[in-house]
Every structure is written in structure tokens, then in C-alpha cells.
Design a protein around this nucleic acid. Structure first.
Lengths: 356, 356
DNA sequence: GTTTCCGCTGGAAACGTTTCCGGGCAGCCG
DNA sequence: CGGCTGCCCGGAAACGTTTCCAGCGGAAAC
């Protein structure tokens, strides 16, 4: 059993047929029934499995795709990854995990290396996406799907969501609840999501008119809990005389920090201050209080990206796809309190609409 | 730029040297300085990167390792994966993600396929680990490190933790707080962690003596939030006359469910009922109340497994390693209330001790 | 009965790389 | 000055697979 694996020539010899016939019998189509039977039997007997490297070299396909992401610790990316993994493994592909560097330049280098033979394609969700990176991705010579924002470059497929509009929904929601002093807890503005969400927030408070008394934004160093807590405390501390009565966070992780900081400051959630998150992670669903959050369809985006990539692999000349997943506000206790549905851990449908 | 990638023969020809010299100049050691300079220059100019498949075929190494796990949605496995990814990518390896099937038989089949050429080794953390699976792993013909429990089979490296002892720490802790009616919220008993933790719980309450009035165990269908909530409600519902004053959960996810269910039942945490978790996930640290939890060193286990695997790849004859990571109770609000440290998101040291 | 065509088989090349092996040349020692 | 040693280089083989191409035989068509 410890002997090294059987090779195709061994199978062929033992079956008394030629190498090419053996190959055809196992995968190809031009073989007689008798041939197929004999070769299959021997292959079974020897426990033959085709060697992935040999096959890859010859076919010029690795049957591997990579998923590159900045911070795999973020539940959103895990959700995406899970969805991607499901799709690609169903289609016989293996999933390779890569973490992009901090800067676009790091990412570009990584991509060049990665695409150099080890994968057939790439799904990437970079935090920062500049022209140089787009150029590097487009010139990679392999199909690349970008999860982030819609792209002008027609050599790349993209999957995105309207997170600006999503933040708008959150703002409208708390304004609709009568909140008038609104804080925004955002991540770095030079990131794709940070920029979009800031834009969405500014637009939403702009159109809300003079009913909104106070508007204040605090930017965390990144989208993690550690940086978020610092920022949340700073944001709340700036408004002691007339405390904020709503905090819109760019992220469920940041929203949790906002709740924690509010509690430290002696404020009740949602009675004194309503808090909204974004991404609708499981984390937010089980949190106390459960988080009102904007579902950006992470799983749907992951699935769409994987489908897009596999489609492009099947037909390289396929027209460019740009899937956009619509955001959807999910209201829970962190804005409505006991009135909110007790939030059974429902699987949300998260539909994605496609436009060519 | 869109032209397909440069190959080594192209580099060699353009540099006016032979194929073998070009290869040596780039990777090997028997080349003159002049040769190295010339070839390197041409390679740079053409943007040459060695093709992974060709190299893999020739060297019989893919420089890929796989991490196989049952449920990547569980934060513990994400933490492990992150640690593994860090170690292997530092050493020039790529990480492949695989999800094991439900049954050991599925897993065995997956392993056979995976090991068939696409990876050099495997780190696997199976939920259920029977003799058949051990046999399949040991006979895979490639190095395999099992994260789960210590193994008798000396063909396999293993990394484990004393989760039974960890549960014991949790029980001792709540008993020390004066709790007398203790519930245990566990996952399936036919899984490796489920079995160990049940054993640990039973032993701990056994040695606690007659001071403990009530002991009750409820087993969830799996280790997820959905199943956990059902089980937690059932567990608490069985004790309305004299409600449980402590719930020990086999998992942070289950602990969160216990808190949620307690709250639904009108019980305060920790005043009426103390709750402990296990795994010390970030989720538990930011939860309200923050969870007292037993740190099993997921990151440390991942790192150790990766190191073990890479070590074995460097030296196949290396002696079998069996790393055991010690559990450590981290006390927070869910048992101590406001007395607990306010739990800054500290990185815990999580040391692992090695025994040969 | 002869020709044509089709289905099936075996031989051989190719994918891109690393490494073994033999040979040439220079330097050093005798 | 000759022989030996050692360094470099080029040729070629090998990793395991798929697929192109040619050939052979039998069946169908005339």
C-alpha cells in the first residue's frame, strides 16, 4: 500500500493495451466498450488516479482557482470564501487561498506570481484598488474576477454591491425612527468600501435635510475590532453634552464596537443610541442586542464571482460580466429593541440581479 | 503584454546559452557569475517566471499543502487556517482549502483524491476520526498532520489539545464561584471534540463531589448556532423549578446560544446563570457579556501543524511528532460580571509544549 | 468483388522544467 | 611541459499526461 502511485503506462501494460488507448478509455471518447471495460478494471485494481501535475502540464490547465483577500479574519470574506469553495468544488476545481499584501503594489506582485502557472483564474477582493492594480490584473493573462466595485476595464469581470446605497438605507432607517444626532463610524477612506460608504453616508444625510441636527464621522484605522473600539470611543466622547442618538457603522465589526463603547459611556442600545452595522454577518445576528445590518450578500457575491470565473474559463471569449448585488436592510434589536423580530438565524435569500 | 508567458527555452535562446545553463543560472548553483548575470537580465527583460506545473512535474513537488476541515464557518477553523497560511506562505508554499465530507468515508475519498498529485502534504482536522480514516491517512503516501487527538499510529504526526482538561477548568471555575446546578451544552458525542469534552465534564463533576446538586447534559445536533439554540432552550427548559445556575458549553458558539436562551427565559448572565465557552474566539471576546472561555490555542495548533508538516517535507524520515497545546481558562464577564476585566482584545500567548 | 469510408488502435510528440552526464578548458602541481 | 583535477557548459533524458496522426481492419456501398 505504501508503494508509490500507479501511473498510466503501468495500467496500460497490465491491461495489455497501448498508453494512448488507456488514456482514451479513462477520459476520452474514441474507445470501444471492451477497451473501456478492460482498462477501467485494471485502473480500479491498481488504484490508479491520474496525476494532477502531469495532466496540468499537458492540458495547460490546473483546475485550481485562487481567492485572494486582504483579511481572512473578517467574517465577510469567510462567507465569500465558503460560497466560492462550494461552487468551484462542485465543478471539479480546487480552491487556493491567498492573502493580498497591504499595498496595491504587493498585491500586484502576488498576482503575477500566483497566476504564473499555479491557477487557471483568480477571484480577488482587494481593499485598495487603484489603476495600477487594475492594469496588473487585466494583463495577468488569466481570467480575473474582481469583487469590489464596478470596473471600466472591459478585460475584467466584476462583482459588486451598492454599499453606498446600503449606508443610505441605514441612515434613512434611523432618521425614520426620529434620530437626529447621527454618528458615522467608518473605516479608512482610501479603501474601496471606505470610500463608497462615506459617499453613501454624506449623500444620505444631505438629502435628509435640516431635520438632522448633528452629523459626525470618525474613521477607524482599519475594519477590525481593535481599531474600531478606539474610534468608537472617540466618536462618542466628542458628544457628551448632546449625545449621539444613532451610530451608523460601516461594518458589523465596527457596529459591535459602537455598542460596546456606548455601553461603557452609560448609554443604552437602542433606547439612547441606535446602532446599525453592515454585512449582516452571523456575528451580528447572534450579538446582544442583535444588530440591525445591511445585507450586502457576501455569499451571493462569492457565488456570482465563482460562476463568472468558471464561465469565463469555459469560454474565454465570453462577454464581460458585471454582476451587482442589491443591498438589503435587515432590522433587528440594535435599532428597534424588543419590538424587533427575535431574529431566528434565518438564511437570507440575498438575490443578485445581473446586468450585462 | 498579452502574449503568453515566456518559457525557459526562450530565455536561454535570447541569452545565447543552453537551456540547462539558463536553469542553473536561475535556481541552481553551478553557474559562473557572468552566466548568472546574463540570464538574470534576460529573464527580467522578458518577465520570466518559472511555470509551476512544469516544475512540479519534474521535481515531484507541488509546493502546495492542503488544509481540510469540516466546517470552515466555525471561527476556530478560520483561526487555524490563518495561522497555517502564514507559516506555509512564508516558506514558499501555497495553501489549498478543502472541506471534508460528513462521514469518515467521504473524508477518506477526498484525501485520496487530494493527495493524488495536487499537494505535497495535508493538515486535516476531522470532526470524526475512526480507525478506517486513520488507516487511509497513514497510507496516503504523503505526509499528513492530524489536528484532533493524539494518535497511536506512528506514521502520522498529530497536534492536539487537552480539551477534556479544559472543560475541567471551566467546571472547577463555576464550582469555585459557588454554582451548584450545572448544565453541559455539548456537541455530538460521536465527534472527537464532543467525546473528549463529555469525558472531561463527567470527570470534573465526579471529582467535585456532593457539593454539586444537579448535573444535566444536552447534546446539540452539531456545533453551530442553529442547532445550539434549540439545544440550549431544551436544556434550560428542563429546570424551571430550580433553574441551572451555570452552563458549561463545549464551544463559544454554543455558549452564545446558552446566553441567548437564558435571556429568553428571563435569567440574567452571570447573576442567575454563569456561562462558559470554549475556544476563546474573537466572537466570544466581543460578545455581550464577554465570554469566559477556555483557550485551546487554535492559532498555536495551526502553526504547530504547519511547522510539523513542513518539517516532515524537508526530512521525510523525521521522527513522529505529537504536539500538545495546553488549555487555559480566560475569565470574563459571562461568569464574573462587572468584576471581570473589561477584556481588551489582547492577543493571548497560547504556548504549546512539545513532547516527542 | 472491389472500393470507400469509418471506427478503433498504437506510436509518438508535446507541455516546461530540473538534473544527470560527458566533454572542454583552464589552472595547478609535478 | 605534460598530466591531472576541478569548474562550467551543452546535450539529453525524464517527470505523467493528452492528443495528433497514421495505419489497419471490417463493414457498407456499388
Amino acid at each position: 500500500m505504501v508503494r508509490s502511485r500507479a501511473t498510466l503506462p503501468q495500467v496500460a501494460e497490465r491491461a495489455g493495451v497501448s498508453l494512448s488507448s488507456a488514456s482514451r478509455a479513462l477520459h476520452g471518447n474514441g474507445a470501444s466498450a471492451a477497451m473501456v471495460g478492460r482498462v477501467r478494471a485494471v485502473a480500479e485494481e491498481l488504484g490508479y488516479h491520474p496525476d494532477a501535475t502531469g495532466r496540468s502540464l499537458r492540458m495547460r490547465r490546473t483546475f485550481q482557482i485562487a481567492f485572494a483577500v486582504a483579511d481572512i479574519g473578517n467574517p465577510v470574506y469567510v462567507e465569500m470564501m465558503t460560497a466560492i469553495q462550494q461552487v468551484v468544488s462542485d465543478r471539479g476545481y480546487r480552491l487556493l487561498l491567498a492573502t493580498t499584501g497591504e499595498t496595491p503594489r504587493d498585491t500586484a506582485a502576488l498576482v503575477r506570481g500566483l497566476v504564473a502557472g499555479s491557477v487557471d483564474g483568480l477571484v480577488i477582493s482587494p481593499l485598495r484598488l487603484d489603476d495600477e492594480l487594475v492594469e496588473a490584473l487585466a494583463g495577468a493573462g488569466k481570467p480575473v474576477v474582481v469583487i469590489g466595485r464596478p470596473l471600466a476595464d472591459d478585460r475584467l469581470d466584476s462583482v459588486s454591491t451598492d454599499s453606498a446605497g446600503g449606508i443610505g438605507q441605514a441612515v434613512d432607517h434611523v432618521v425614520g425612527l426620529g434620530r437626529r444626532r447621527i454618528g458615522f463610524l467608518n473605516g479608512p477612506l482610501d479603501t474601496t468600501p471606505g470610500e463608497a460608504r462615506q459617499r453613501g453616508f454624506d449623500a444620505a444625510v444631505g438629502r435628509s435635510g435640516p431635520g438632522v441636527e448633528t452629523v459626525d464621522t470618525e474613521v477607524a484605522d482599519d475594519f477590525t475590532v481593535t481599531a474600531g473600539l478606539v474610534a468608537a470611543r472617540a466618536l462618542l466622547a466628542r458628544h457628551t453634552a448632546a449625545p449621539l442618538d444613532a451610530v451608523v457603522a460601516a461594518n458589523d465589526l465596527l457596529a459591535i464596537c459602537a455598542v460596546k463603547a456606548a455601553r461603557e459611556a452609560g448609554l443604552r442600545v437602542p433606547d439612547d443610541v441606535a446602532v446599525t452595522g453592515m454585512d449582516d454577518t452571523e456575528l451580528g445576528r447572534v450579538f446582544q442586542p442583535s444588530l440591525t445590518s445591511v445585507d450586502l450578500g457576501a455569499a451571493a457575491r462569492g457565488r456570482a464571482a465563482a460562476e463568472l470565473l468558471l464561465g469565463r474559463l469555459d469560454d474565454p471569449a465570453h462577454e464581460r460580466g458585471a454582476v451587482v448585488v442589491a443591498p438589503r436592510l435587515v432590522v433587528r434589536e440594535s435599532t428597534l429593541g424588543a419590538h424587533a423580530p427575535s431574529a431566528p438565524p434565518d438564511r437570507r435569500p440575498s438575490t443578485g440581479e445581473e446586468r450585462p
